[in-house]
């Protein structure tokens, strides 16, 4: 699935005439698909560098708590700090999930090699997917090329739908879907950022309200 999703990304790069080497550079140096797709889409709509920086940063915020929790598992406190800064580049959703779930079965010294072996394999598959997507998009009939580009929004829609397990996320998903196109029409540069803040805050408040309601009803039942 990772390979296929990066095939979609490679096709998306070709569709906005981003050269293959830059698509590859994006996968190699970014390696966070939501931010990469946001970057290519904003390039396609002619947004400013500042808008790209903010939207990509907001889309990648999950990497901070993931890194904060994974690094102490991987790197011994007495080992050089720069190692952690290098290793952190390969923290992504799948490499994080697998390493966090396997860490108890690994000696501390074996965790970083395990993580890097796993993450670098995924990373190389991602790079291969980018090349394949870019190459294939130029060689297949137009309908198939469009299908590969369409893979990007559909893949993320399914990822978000699979993750929409609490009320807050459902609210963020729904309001983001409504506000995204509207805010884009108002400001192509900052629409994505505004959508994130508005829909995300709505989802956050909904999750808090839901949790508080539960707590209150729980108290009532106890009393």
């Amino acid at each position: 699935m990772i390979f296929a999703s990066f095939v979609g990304f490679g096709s998306l790069c070709r569709s906005v005439e981003l050269p293959m080497w830059l698509g590859l550079a994006s996968t190699a140096t970014g390696w966070a698909l939501p931010g990469q797709v946001a970057m290519v889409e904003l390039v396609g709509t002619g947004a400013s560098l500042a808008a790209i920086a903010v939207a990509v940063a907001l889309s990648g915020s999950r990497l901070l708590p993931m890194t904060v929790t994974l690094v102490p598992q991987l790197i011994a406190p007495d080992s050089p700090r720069w190692r952690a800064y290098v290793v952190a580049h390969w923290i992504a959703v799948t490499s994080w999930l697998i390493t966090m779930s396997e860490r108890h079965r690994l000696d501390r010294g074996a965790r970083t090699p395990f993580f890097l072996g796993f993450a670098l394999t995924l990373w190389l598959w991602s790079l291969a997917g980018t090349v394949v997507g870019f190459t294939v998009a130029g060689a297949v009939p137009p309908a198939m090329m469009l299908g590969l580009v369409f893979l990007n929004p559909i893949y993320f829609l399914m990822v978000l739908a699979a993750d929409a397990t609490d009320r807050g996320r459902v609210v963020a998903l729904g309001s983001g879907a409504v506000l995204g196109p509207m805010f884009h029409l108002v400001t192509a540069d900052w629409g994505l950022m505004l959508t994130g803040f508005a829909a995300g805050s709505a989802g956050f408040l909904a999750s808090r309200a839901h949790r508080n309601a539960h707590r209150l009803s729980g108290t009532a039942a106890d009393g």
Binding site: V149, S175, P181, A199, G200
Partner: peptide, 26 residues
């Protein structure tokens, strides 16, 4: 938790825009 929801809402908005108001060949 809040910044996680912001990322989630931003992605939802991006997806909807790519489907409803696509840039490029779509």
């Amino acid at each position: 938790a809040w910044i996680g929801y912001v990322a989630y809402g931003l992605l939802a908005g991006l997806i909807a825009r790519m489907i409803l108001l696509p840039a490029g060949p779509l």
